[in-house]
């Protein structure tokens, strides 16, 4: 199959790869770049575990063509922590026991980040809406909703 060159930034770092034409961003990130923080779940746009942020917007990487991301800025959970210092969302998920088997967690956190980036003080309904495309099998969602609200509160405290 025809290979196409793709350049983008991943968590602020320049990346350049040849991908098969028609390959998904999910495949490019996991198999070409090696960022396995992006999870391959249903691979048909239903479970949300592959969610990443592309140019500030939440995208399902399993339904996004890699070649359409040329020149884009891509964010994944792999880039959230600074060394040992966790991102407020990661900390809130950890402290709030909002992750169990962990497979949905990267997608949940990226959905939450996309929300908080645009709406730093969301209501509970905003949070529910933001993660409504993400399936979790273990937690029953409540600890995830609470963790996202806790991260928003922590952000407002550190901003004040």
């Amino acid at each position: 199959m025809k290979k196409v060159p793709v350049q983008f930034t991943l968590n602020g770092e320049d990346k350049a790869e040849f991908v098969e034409s028609g390959a998904t961003l999910l495949k490019a990130l996991r198999e070409k770049i090696g960022d396995t923080s992006v999870k391959a779940g249903c691979q048909q746009g239903t479970c949300g575990s592959c969610a990443v942020i592309v140019d500030g917007e939440l995208r399902l990487s399993c339904l996004t063509l890699a070649e359409r991301c040329d020149g884009a800025a891509i964010e994944t959970t792999g880039g959230l922590a600074h060394g040992e210092v966790l991102h407020p969302l990661q900390r809130a998920f950890n402290e709030g026991f909002a992750t169990q088997c962990g497979f949905c967690t990267p997608g949940m956190i990226m959905a939450a980040k996309a929300l908080l980036d645009g709406n730093p003080q969301p209501s509970r309904e905003d949070v529910v809406e933001a993660i409504s495309g993400n399936i979790c099998r273990c937690t029953g969602y409540e600890p995830i909703i609470q963790a996202i609200l806790a991260a928003a509160r922590a952000n407002s405290l550190s901003a004040a």
Partner: peptide
């Protein structure tokens, strides 16, 4: 046959 046809309650159905 896949996730699209397997119903589970989401975060809005708690």
């Amino acid at each position: 046959r896949d996730f699209n046809e397997y119903l589970m309650p989401g975060p809005g159905d708690l």
